[in-house]
């Protein structure tokens, strides 16, 4: 188990480094001079040169890369051109919106999808299965921003249960803050839950064909007991793989959803930073997001080891 952890941790660090190199290179290659953007096209050449020197843009790319990486390691993320505040401060303010949102969405989709998928599989080709599969297909087909608008129309405009947008802030108390995240979390969770339901269903169906399910039945377990006690845990292994992969889609989704709901989260910050060519913010944010994806996959790997004893190393033959 320790060896397993060490291996995964090394993988984690390596993936992050590669992500940083890719992000840096892409932004290097991209046309557009941040100094020019800040000063406007009519800027004087000498002012431009001075600003470039101040921002370190006159130094060779690899020097800037190592400075940046060193900064990331020590928490010195640099200063935003447009907001003129430290990037770490900028990110800190927004993480408290985006992280709870992502966790809520992921939890919602898991809690909805896994039971539905298992139930659909246990009623294979019966009415409930067909209804659930159809609903899941529908869920996949609906774009989440449109679903978000429908949610706003129903719950905010018509029923007036929750605010239509904006974030109350955690200072306003737990419930008001959670309330403003509920609809966005649902909007994000729906397509994920739809996909996850289908994956769970097919995975459970496959496992139900396995010999050990028949063995469990031969022991005297009822169909449902064999399903929940023996099939589901085996079926969850591919499901958590998809769950890990979905996390990156979830992050991409937050960019849109945070804009629809006017939430001051990381997705909106990234969107604004790109629009304003605030390259330092973009670079730091993308590495942060990449890092969180890698971290979630690391957790997924640990999840495999919990679910499947065969993946824990060190268990040889007796």
């Amino acid at each position: 188990m320790t060896l397993f952890l060490v291996k995964r941790l090394i993988m984690l660090a390596a993936t992050l480094l590669v992500a940083a190199i890719v992000v840096f290179s892409v932004l290097e290659i991209l046309p557009g001079d941040p100094a020019l953007v800040m000063l406007g096209v009519s800027a004087q050449p000498d002012t431009l040169a001075a600003l470039r020197a101040e921002m370190g843009l006159d130094q060779p790319a690899w020097t800037r890369f190592f400075q940046w990486i060193g900064g990331l390691m020590t928490g010195e993320l640099g200063r935003s051109y447009t907001y003129d505040v430290p990037v770490s401060e900028l990110i800190g303010e927004r993480v408290v919106v985006s992280l709870p949102l992502a966790v809520m969405a992921l939890t919602l989709s898991t809690v909805i999808a896994i039971p539905l998928g298992v139930i659909a599989a246990s009623r294979h080709n019966k009415t409930l299965d067909i209804a659930l599969t159809g609903a899941a297909q529908f869920g996949i087909a609906i774009p989440n921003f449109w679903f978000a608008i429908l949610l706003i129309l129903l719950f905010s405009v018509t029923l007036q249960w929750v605010p239509a947008g904006g974030f109350a802030g955690w200072d306003a108390g737990f419930w008001p803050a959670t309330q403003s995240l509920l609809l966005p979390a649902f909007a994000l969770a729906l397509p994920q839950a739809a996909i996850l339901t289908r994956v769970t269903r097919s995975s459970v169906l496959e496992v139900l064909q396995e010999d050990f399910v028949r063995t469990a039945r031969a022991k005297g377990l009822s169909r449902n007991a064999a399903l929940w006690r023996h099939a589901v845990r085996n079926a969850l292994i591919p499901v958590i793989t998809i769950l890990g992969l979905q996390f990156s889609f979830l992050l991409a989704g937050t960019i849109i959803i945070e804009n629809v709901f006017y939430l001051p989260g990381l997705g909106r910050l990234l969107f604004q930073a790109i629009a304003q060519r605030d390259l330092i913010v973009v670079k730091d944010l993308v590495v942060l997001l990449a890092g969180s994806v890698v971290l979630v996959n690391f957790i997924v790997d640990l999840g495999y080891a919990v679910l499947d004893p065969r993946l824990r190393s060190g268990g040889g033959h007796v």
Binding site: D211, F212, T215, A218, D308, P309
Partner: peptide, 13 residues
């Protein structure tokens, strides 16, 4: 019942 394939007749987890 005792099954033919002991490799798959037991729940691996």
């Amino acid at each position: 019942m005792v099954f033919q394939e002991p490799m798959t007749a037991l729940n691996p987890v």
